[in-house]
Design a protein around this nucleic acid. Sequence first.
DNA 1: AGCTAAATGTTTAGGTCTAAACGTGAGGAT
DNA 2: ATCCTCACGTTTAGACCTAAACATTTAGCT
Lengths: 176, 176
Amino acid sequence: MTDTYPLDSPSPYPAADIARAWQRERPGTPTDSIEIVTPLWRLAKLFADDRRRVLADLNIDPATLDLLSVLRRAGAPYQLTTRELAARTLVTAGAISQRVTRAESANLVTRTPAPHRAVLITLTPTGHALIERSVDQVLTRESALISSLTPESRAHLATALQSLLNDVTHQTSNQP
Amino acid sequence: MTDTYPLDSPSPYPAADIARAWQRERPGTPTDSIEIVTPLWRLAKLFADDRRRVLADLNIDPATLDLLSVLRRAGAPYQLTTRELAARTLVTAGAISQRVTRAESANLVTRTPAPHRAVLITLTPTGHALIERSVDQVLTRESALISSLTPESRAHLATALQSLLNDVTHQTSNQP
DNA sequence: AGCTAAATGTTTAGGTCTAAACGTGAGGAT
DNA sequence: ATCCTCACGTTTAGACCTAAACATTTAGCT
């Protein structure tokens, strides 16, 4: 019984092996979350890395794509405040500020002061054009990546994920 | 019909709404991956953010925890090469090198040259003690976060995720 | 022996994020 | 009127990553 795996093999350590290793090394370790959390993180990383590679060819980074996407999806006149952007993208207001600064210097968005100390971020024609030619490529690629799922298992998985997301969101939202 | 959501509401934009918005704005956009990929990313981010907060109290960062965990799980004598670490953690060799440098200056691991130009990373007693007192807290917290799942739905979800992970890994592994 | 190709770890440049400190407006209380 | 507190966006420090260039060793070939 060997302990080595081929180094180039995909997903060399299934979650079950990780849990087993903890039990062997530290009997009683609470490992029951591993079979959910580990594949979840690995999938998210694979999708993120793949998206970064797709976008590299288009000269746009994932954070900027996310920003422009939210503005584009909001519909005309394609503008939202910093705070609304933060809420829709799950990053902090500070991160949005930095994203906007980058996108602004690439002429993809503009900043406009608004009442109540808010700042409106608006998509420029250049930004609009960029998102139009990027979004289909990204989504088509991701659609291909999950094409192994049957319609039934896809619907099942989507429901399960959304349900867990609601629950975890609720549990983590009132954090210190 | 208003378009505003309460900004402090959890998960303000379900994946289904995002897909709907794209269809409204750009009919024909290939949105079928969104219901899977979006909740996946959001869950991964919630777990990552939560883990970071748990670890902040213990004075350890997530990347270092990951490094020490892999070494600890490997069993005595708690040493692996850089390349093995990279394979087990899904980050690049460069990232491992940086993690090791950080952990080394905190006296948590040591570097030892090994045959074949390899470098063995070994857990120090300090590193061993740190991982022992961290791992249970992290895993217990994550177990609580998924406690809403029934045993059946948990098993179902774990299987579905692992299966999708195998598939996506295979599709993305021979990338340029 | 000498050369070349592959493998391994490190460094560097650049992007990205969070948390916390900060500056500043706006509204309410007195 | 004045103060106080909250809300909002920005800035900064520090963590973290990838991709690519780099340096060095090993192994195979001639």
